[in-house]
Simulated scan of single mutants.
Amino acid sequence: MDNLTIAIDGPAGAGKSTIAKKLAETLNINYIDTGAMYRALTLKVIKKGINLNDETQILDILDNTEIDFRNNHIYLDKKIVDKEIRDNKISNNVSYIAKIKEVRQWLVKIQRKISNEKDVIMDGRDIGSHVLPNAKYKFYITATVEERGKRRYKEIKEKNPNTNVALEKIIDEIRNRDYIDSNREVTPLVQAEDAIKIDTTNLNIEESVSQIYKHINGRQ
């Protein structure tokens, strides 16, 4: 029997990771956050002091880098890095790592291997269009850039109330990230032709999950 595969794509701050996690719990299947994999590599690049534009040095560390998911934790070289990869510095630089062709090829192999071994819901930027083109279900989660900026701003302030950050700056950062993700040469952010679009601008997490769950169960 074929594994159950659900692909969820969308831009930063649309809520896709939170939605995917909730859906995985509801369906009792494995959640794979592909964005976290790129974040983990970005974390390693920054910690090593490698220039984000030096593709040669970045590619040189791949052979000695191990990224894995176990028990809902992401591991970088056998160490849990769940919290470290959510730092705003990682958020603002991950797109520079994610646009490198060889990095994407390296991680896609890992992602496909995981999906061949178990039932998964996987979210990212190019899951339905590239990583899992034959996924049984595909969804594209989006929201306005203003709404996504507000969510990111709220998240940052909740983690550190004393952080001096402007909402307008966060919105600009997300807009820039959208541009990089959508215009990169290799597998850019795009809605797969057979993906169902879910706009979460005016939906909370429960409402968004409910919409997707209904589609999976054949109810419109």
Rank of each mutant, 00 (worst) to 15 (best):
F69K: 04
D77E: 03
D63G: 03
K48V: 06
D82N: 14
N51C: 14
I85C: 09
K79V: 15
I74H: 04
I74D: 06
I85H: 01
D82L: 09
K78E: 14
N64A: 00
D68V: 03
I46C: 02
D77N: 15
D77I: 11
D87I: 11
L76K: 04
L52I: 13
E84L: 12
H73V: 07
L52Q: 04
N72D: 13
I61P: 00
Y75I: 07
K83D: 15
H73R: 10
Q57C: 06
D54Y: 10
Y75V: 03
E66S: 14
I67F: 05
N53S: 11
L52P: 04
K78P: 06
E55K: 10
K47T: 07
I50E: 11
D54G: 08
D87C: 08
L52W: 12
N51E: 15
T65C: 01
Q57T: 12
K48Q: 15
D54N: 15
D68Y: 13
G49M: 08
Y75P: 09
E84G: 02
V45G: 00
D87E: 12
N64D: 10
Y75M: 03
I46T: 02
G49W: 00
N53Y: 15
L62M: 07
L59E: 05
I61N: 00
K48C: 02
T65W: 07
D87M: 07
I58A: 00
F69D: 02
N71P: 05
D68I: 06
L62I: 02
L76C: 10
K83M: 14
I50S: 06
D63T: 09
I46A: 05
L52H: 08
D77Y: 02
E84C: 04
L59Q: 07
I74N: 03
V81N: 09
N53Q: 12
I85R: 08
I74Q: 04
K79W: 07
V45E: 08
Q57E: 14
K83T: 13
V81A: 09
K44E: 03
D63I: 04
I67K: 05
I80P: 00
G49A: 02
Y75E: 10
N71H: 11
K47N: 15
K44G: 05
Y75A: 09
K79C: 01
I46M: 10
K78W: 10
N71G: 06
D63Y: 06
I74G: 08
G49F: 01
Y75K: 09
I85Q: 06
D87S: 12
T56F: 13
T56Y: 13
N53P: 14
N53G: 12
N53I: 14
Y75C: 05
D54T: 06
N72V: 05
I61V: 02
K79Q: 12
K79H: 07
N71A: 14
L62D: 05
I50F: 09
E84V: 09
D54I: 03
R86A: 06
L52G: 04
R86S: 08
K48E: 14
H73Y: 12
N64T: 10
L59F: 03
H73I: 05
I58N: 01
N71L: 12
Q57V: 03
D68H: 11
I80W: 08
N72Q: 12
N72E: 14
N72F: 00
N71I: 11
E66V: 12
K83H: 14
K44F: 08
K83F: 13
T56A: 07
Q57I: 02
R86D: 05
K83C: 04
F69P: 03
D63N: 12
N64F: 01
